[in-house]
Structures are given as structure tokens and as C-alpha cells.
Design a protein around this nucleic acid. Sequence first.
DNA 1: CGCAAAATTGAACCCAATCAATGTTCGTGG
DNA 2: CCACGAACATTGATTGGGTTCAATTTTGCG
Lengths: 234, 234
Amino acid sequence: MRSDDLDLLRELPLFQGISDAGFRELTQAAFLQRFPAQVTLINEGEHPDFLHVVLEGLVEMFARDRQRETVLTIVQPVSTFILAAVITDEIYLKSARTLVASRILMLPAASVRKVFAEEPAFARAIVGELGFRYREVVRELKNQKLRSGAERLAAWLLGQREIADGAREITIPFEKRVLASLLGMTPENLSRAFATLAAYDVTTSGRRIVIGDPAALWKLVQPSQFIDEWKNGE
Amino acid sequence: MRSDDLDLLRELPLFQGISDAGFRELTQAAFLQRFPAQVTLINEGEHPDFLHVVLEGLVEMFARDRQRETVLTIVQPVSTFILAAVITDEIYLKSARTLVASRILMLPAASVRKVFAEEPAFARAIVGELGFRYREVVRELKNQKLRSGAERLAAWLLGQREIADGAREITIPFEKRVLASLLGMTPENLSRAFATLAAYDVTTSGRRIVIGDPAALWKLVQPSQFIDEWKNGE
DNA sequence: CGCAAAATTGAACCCAATCAATGTTCGTGG
DNA sequence: CCACGAACATTGATTGGGTTCAATTTTGCG
């Protein structure tokens, strides 16, 4: 395991403030693994053995019920996933698979719980992380319940634009079918949503999207800091 | 403030393990208030001043976007709400209003954060609580994205039945319009969902519902421990 | 270059929202 | 205690958003 990977880890808010001893405890039995795209890392219903950290690549969190499947979140580097399951020591509620080749760091769940029990600083950091994640899901639930498909797409585009620092053109970092599922619709319907947004000067070519008139989209969805995490205040 | 109310509070998992001094810190500046039905307790976007505890009654957590409004959860005694906002010291993402006359205990947010910072046991308890809540919302998001309206109703009915210890008849403890919004549909559509479930031997009279054939509903939704919190294992 | 998977488009269908009208319930005041 | 009114619930008709199925085009990759 490379030491600059450890540095990456150490810089995460989650690991700030814990002692070096605690950090060593967490990482000594950890291991790093490379996965190609489309590899299932964890399955809904399994017991958590590791806290996963995406160092490089892209991971899709999804869930199934009967025939249906839906994407819940996309995890980008550098961040952890399924912390809640690890810390409560309950089964996973989501499955995870790589979308592209990825480097994943795996910290033994037992170590995480041990340091959690021993180091108040870690416990407090976990509170911060869980609080943040909780609020993310609440936002997503509101997004789903309060907005139409086209609106969710428009909001997502504006969010990506924000991340890209206001760039005119953005690129979807994964397949459109994945985006469709993330937004809670079928691939067909995503196509139609894009067709709808053409009237708002959104043009597509493959995964690249040009947002010609952000103000028009803005007017359509009226992004809210109560739903869209990227939007703080006005 | 009555001492048996303090006992109720003390017994919540959230307050287990903290010192008496810490508990006193939390409760000394707390106050208890009675509210009639339909009183708004907090508003989306406000800053948290108190951690609220429902001692008696029913509180509805909801959110608005433009014209639309949706119910996110119903809080029943005895439990806290908006802990995540208090602990991260961020604005509320939900509003709250009483559904019936209620007794609400309000703990100053500053005290909560103080004890959180000072008492590792409290920090750990909060992790447990947040982890649990987080998983609740994930379940709800899956419920919304993976199930149809009628299925969500069927699952909700089976959950209520479980809570009522398998009773044949259950009673919706609030208006049907609230249930409709909680389940993510219109009141009209809830009526039709009930009409659909008549084929599964579900009969209604006002708020009272008779589930004549639980197995039929079961077959319809196939409740899953990955979505339905009340269902553990098979 | 060729193939397989992904994306798009069209058509039919279905679930859900909206609009409108009626029936029911419940709280209030006479 | 009854009568009344307002809010809630239900039902019907219509519309609309979204899914499904099928066929075609495009893309990406070996």
C-alpha cells in the first residue's frame, strides 16, 4: 500500500483528529485492491466486513427489489461508502459495483468499530459524516417526491455545471442508462427528457451536454438549497 | 416539567450512557410545551435552536417545493426529530407540524452540541441514532423508487399490521390525505389504491382497515428486510 | 472494420395527476 | 341534541407523464 494513498485517506474529514495510533490500527490490516469495471463489490443483505474507500474510479450504489433495480448514488473519489452499515453492524441496504476500473481501499469493519469505541474524536467525525449523508438522502427523497423527471434532469445538469465551475459543456462520467436510473426513470424516458430540455437550449452529443442557457433551466427547476446540495443560498 | 417526562427521555437509547451531569446540562434549560393540532413547530430553512422530543401526540415532517408539498415522515412518541440538523448545525431540510394535540420537549441545541463535544458516550449514542435514521431514509427512497403506489400502500398496511401485533383490523392514526402524501401519491390515488386492494380482501371504513388476507398482500409486495424496517429475516 | 451493447425513436399502454362533482364526516354553534 | 357548514373522501372523466415493447440507429470497443 502506497503511503500517498494513506495521505489521501488521512485528509478525509472522517479521519481528521484521530490519533496516529488509531489511524495505524485502522490501516494496518487494510488492503488496497484494483477492480476492473462492472465488478460487484458488495451485495445488499450481506454483513459488512470492510469500510470501503474509493481512491480512484467510480462506484455505483444500487438496490434491487424483485425484477426492478435502481441506482441510489454514485460514489466518487475520495470518499467512503456504507459507513452506516459498518458502524451499526447491520446488513447492507445497498449493493455496490464499479462503473470503471477503480482502486478501492478496504478497512476492516472490526477495526473501524474498535477505534470508534476508543477514540471520541473518531466518533465525533463519524457523527459529522453520518449527519451529512443523512441530509443527502433526505434531499434525494425530496428530489424524487417533489420534482418531475425532466426537472430532476435539469437540476442534475445544473449541479454538474456548478461542479464544473460554470462550464458551458459538461460530460456525463458514466452511461446514460445509469444516469436514468439514478434520476429514477427509464433510459427511454431520459432520452425524452433530454428532448424536452432541447426547448431550453440543452444540446447533447453522446455523453457531452451543452447547456446553452442555464438561466432557462434555472427558471424551470428553481434550484433550492433545501434540495440541491450544491446550491448554498441565493 | 414533570420528572416522569425526564424518565421517559432518559430511557431513550439516545440518552443512555451519558453522565447525570450531562443529562442535567441537557435538560436544565429545556422546556416542555403543549401544542394543539396543526401547529407548525419548525420551518424548512430555519436554523435549529432546539432538539425536539415528541412526548405525546403526533408530528408530521414535511417539505415544500414551489406549489408541491410532501410528507416525509410521521414522528411518534417517544422520539426526537431533526437531530441531524442540530448536530451539524445546519438549516432544517424539513418542516414539522403537529397532527394532533402534542406535548413537545425542547432541548437547547447549544446544550446538545456541548454535551456532544464533552461526552464520548453521547457522541456514540448519536452515531447509533443517526446511523439508524440514515438507514430509514435509504429504505424509504428504495420504497419510492422500486414500488408502485398500490404496492407502497400494501407494504405500509402490512407494516402497521406488524406493529399492531398481527391484528386483523388497523386504524390509520391520521387523515388519509396525510397517508397519501407520505406514500407519495394524491388523495384520489390513495382511494383508488384502496379500491385496487379490495381484490386482495382489504376493506375500509373511514380510517379503519380490515386486512382479511394478509398472505395475499404479502404475495403482492413481497416485503423485504432491505426495504421494510419492520421485517427482520424470513 | 465489424459486432455487441447502448441510445434513440415510435407506438401502445398503464399508472398517476388533475379537474369536477358528489357524498361523507366531523366539529361547531344554535 | 340537532343542524349546519367546512373540510375530507370518494368517484368519474380526462389528461399527462412514464413505462413497456419493438424496431432502428448510433456508439464504443475489440
